[in-house]
Design a protein around this nucleic acid. Structure first.
Lengths: 200, 200
DNA sequence: GCACATTATTGGACGCGGTCTAATAACTAT
DNA sequence: ATAGTTATTAGACCGCGTCCAATAATGTGC
């Protein structure tokens, strides 16, 4: 017996996952740049307008796994006890989020750069996510430190996420023999956290 | 007497500066989002197509000062002697570039965020510049270190530029009494360089 | 069964950024 | 006067993102 209350209204015909799979097929066949939203929607069996009921923009289809993984960052930050040094808390939380990402879900857009046909959309949509998580980290830091001069929480957030982004990119392009994502992220993020921790 | 050889061909009717000024007027009058490329071109006295002879995209008009300033980064990096520790070289170069930016040229888009009407274009166009300079730094680091494992140069580049970007944003929003840009940039960038330097 | 409310889907249209083609214009050199 | 060079322009097109209104597919209550 399903304990979810039965939903009224018209049932959904698709899902983010279905649209993502349709998109991935088309991107392999004809690149991201040459694939239109209409193409993706038709392949998934819905109308073009309906695509925008599931995704805010065409490029959002590239981030379904990432968006699920990154939801954990604020949870991991809050899980850090107040006794934990704040920079360690930030670094550890980011590494744990990276560790929680399924090893087999390497983002297609990062490994098949040639098949994208452009970097602008990927990078712009990635940046929207970066800015959102930077705000999460900045608020966490501001709440854990007495001094909120505006600059240091922002600099920490941008620098540490920048390092993590670099690690993710290198990890994705490392090929089949790549080590776990968390290894790369730790190696990139630890020096940044150490540098800011020493400065406090 | 002008020692520049006289240019053949049709003379230019406008310039990046003229278009930038026209754009700034319109952005103040009706926000960036509500201003079209056609608006800017007409205000500057040229056609819509001609705008694209001067700028690659609408948002490029926001970065004229920055684009002139950032040209110095590769020069400042090369000016660093081989005796200088590599992380110091990177940090110092970035701070010198920041110091060379005219104090009175605070980017309008950063101080008048409300009058932009959107952040997406500003951030996306900023990221294109970020990625370009990250590559400059990554190549510099790769050429100055024996080990090029791919990850560290990239992590350093992303982290240090991320910190600098955070500093620039905080500096811009600091108001009339703001300190020089180089102060903010140094404060943000130094811990990152120290962290990576200690790790070598 | 039917009416109603709710949620999703759809068609069509529009504005805008970006791009393309081809014609025209404004210069210099000969 | 003509040819070559560079810039400008008009018009068109594509695709993304958005909007409006109509339609559809459900569940609920009577």
């Amino acid at each position: 017996m399903n304990d979810q209350p039965q939903q009224v209204g018209r049932p959904r015909r698709s899902s983010k996952r279905i649209l993502e799979e349709a998109a991935a097929e088309l991107f392999l066949e004809q690149t991201y740049a040459r694939t239109t939203v209409d193409d993706i929607a038709q392949r998934a069996g819905v109308s073009r307008n309906t695509f925008f009921n599931y995704f805010g923009s065409k490029s959002d289809v590239l981030w379904v796994d990432f968006d699920e993984t990154i939801e954990r960052l604020s949870v991991e930050l809050e899980a850090s006890g107040p006794a934990n040094p704040v920079m360690d808390a930030v670094g550890d939380a980011i590494v744990r989020v990276a560790a929680s990402h399924p090893d087999d879900r390497v983002p297609w857009a990062l490994t098949q750069v040639d098949l994208m046909g452009t970097r602008d959309d990927l990078e712009a949509s990635g940046l929207r996510r970066f800015m959102k998580q930077a705000e999460v980290i900045r608020l966490f830091l501001s709440s854990r430190t007495a001094v909120d001069d505006g600059l240091q929480p922002q600099a920490v957030a941008f620098a540490v996420l920048g390092a993590a982004a670099a690690a993710a990119g290198v990890w994705a392009s490392a090929g089949i023999g790549r080590r776990p994502l968390a290894d790369y992220v730790a190696e990139a993020v630890d020096p940044v956290c150490a540098g800011f921790a020493a400065r406090r």
